[in-house]
Amino acid sequence: MIEQECLAFAAASANEVCGLVIDGEYLMRCSNAHPEPERHFRISDDDWLKAEAAGKITAVFHSHPINKLVLSGADRQAQIATGIDWWLASGGRLRKFRPVPHLLGRSFEHGVTDCYTLFRDAYHLCGINLPDFERSAGWWVRGENLYLKNMASSGFSEVPAANIQPGDVIIRRAFPESDPCHAMIWLGDNMVLHHEQAGRLSRREPYRQAYVKLTHSIWRHEQCSNLNLQGIFDDISARSL
């Protein structure tokens, strides 16, 4: 099984190992051409050409010798450049990452790159995969309550505002009369990550008093102990460079 081969390859070296997944079922092991292989990896042009001749490259694989099962900032920049899945082995586990856009600076398009897309992608980078759900513009004024209907079924439970912790999701209204329709991820130190409509880019900013007044509820995922926010912070650092 290819996943087991990836883990065995990673366990065999104290450096970062790397490879290319061909047609989703075959791992082509590559030499790490980076001058600092204990902390970074690089796949040579020759290995890329060999892989392309063997079939379709469907994923890049590499390992982290330290126990860090999220993509680094450099990994995220390179993943976005390749536009394909990246597989990462660390600590005896393997995780597969979709090539989602950087979390900061996204343009808003409802149902495509909106507040739920950002929330879902951020959790994906942190190691928790959430389902997508159908949503059409204006659901927040039609009484459809999509967030409240989907949070519990996606593994979230409501927690008191006084107990908020990094990674929790704040659900708020867009205006006092609307249904709860906007999600923000609490990053700690009074900072949130979110993506509003009205032509504004996705951003990290303080949890302003205006947001507090519109807050409906706070939610925490059942796997919160596995939520590694470093995946978010590394992506933000990469986007800021």
Rank of each mutant, 00 (worst) to 15 (best):
G24N: 00
S90I: 00
V100D: 12
G83N: 00
P65F: 06
A54K: 14
H34W: 08
F61D: 02
A81L: 11
N15C: 11
E36N: 15
K68H: 11
A11I: 05
N32P: 11
E52M: 06
C18G: 06
Q77A: 13
V70I: 11
L20V: 02
E38P: 03
L88Y: 05
H64I: 01
S63M: 02
V60N: 06
F97T: 12
K50C: 08
I22F: 00
D47R: 08
A33S: 15
H62N: 06
T82F: 06
W86E: 04
G73A: 11
M28W: 02
N15H: 14
T58F: 00
L69N: 09
R76G: 02
R76D: 04
G19T: 05
A89K: 01
V60D: 03
D46H: 15
I80W: 04
A14E: 11
L49R: 15
R76P: 00
D47Q: 13
P101R: 07
H62L: 04
E16I: 00
P37F: 12
E36A: 15
G83T: 10
G73Q: 03
N32V: 09
S13D: 12
S90G: 04
F9S: 08
W48A: 00
M28R: 06
I84G: 00
F9I: 06
C18Y: 03
E52Q: 14
E38I: 11
G55Q: 00
I66C: 08
D23S: 13
E38R: 15
L94F: 03
K96V: 14
A78H: 11
H62R: 05
A11T: 09
R76N: 08
E16T: 05
G92M: 07
R95V: 12
C30I: 07
T82H: 12
G92S: 05
A14V: 13
Y26W: 09
S63C: 08
V60G: 04
D85S: 14
G92V: 04
R93E: 13
R76Y: 05
G73N: 04
G91Y: 07
P101D: 09
G92K: 08
P65A: 06
R39V: 10
A10K: 01
R29I: 03
P101Q: 05
C18S: 07
I66T: 13
G73M: 00
F9K: 11
A11G: 09
A59V: 07
L94N: 04
K96D: 01
I57H: 02
G91K: 09
F41A: 09
G83C: 02
V70N: 07
I22D: 05
F9C: 10
E25S: 13
L20C: 03
I43M: 04
N32S: 09
M28P: 07
R76E: 05
P101N: 12
W87T: 07
F97V: 12
A14P: 05
D45A: 15
R39A: 12
F41N: 05
C18A: 14
D75T: 08
G73S: 06
H40Y: 15
S63V: 10
A53R: 15
I57C: 04
A11S: 14
K56E: 12
W87H: 12
I84R: 02
A78N: 12
R95K: 14
S31L: 11
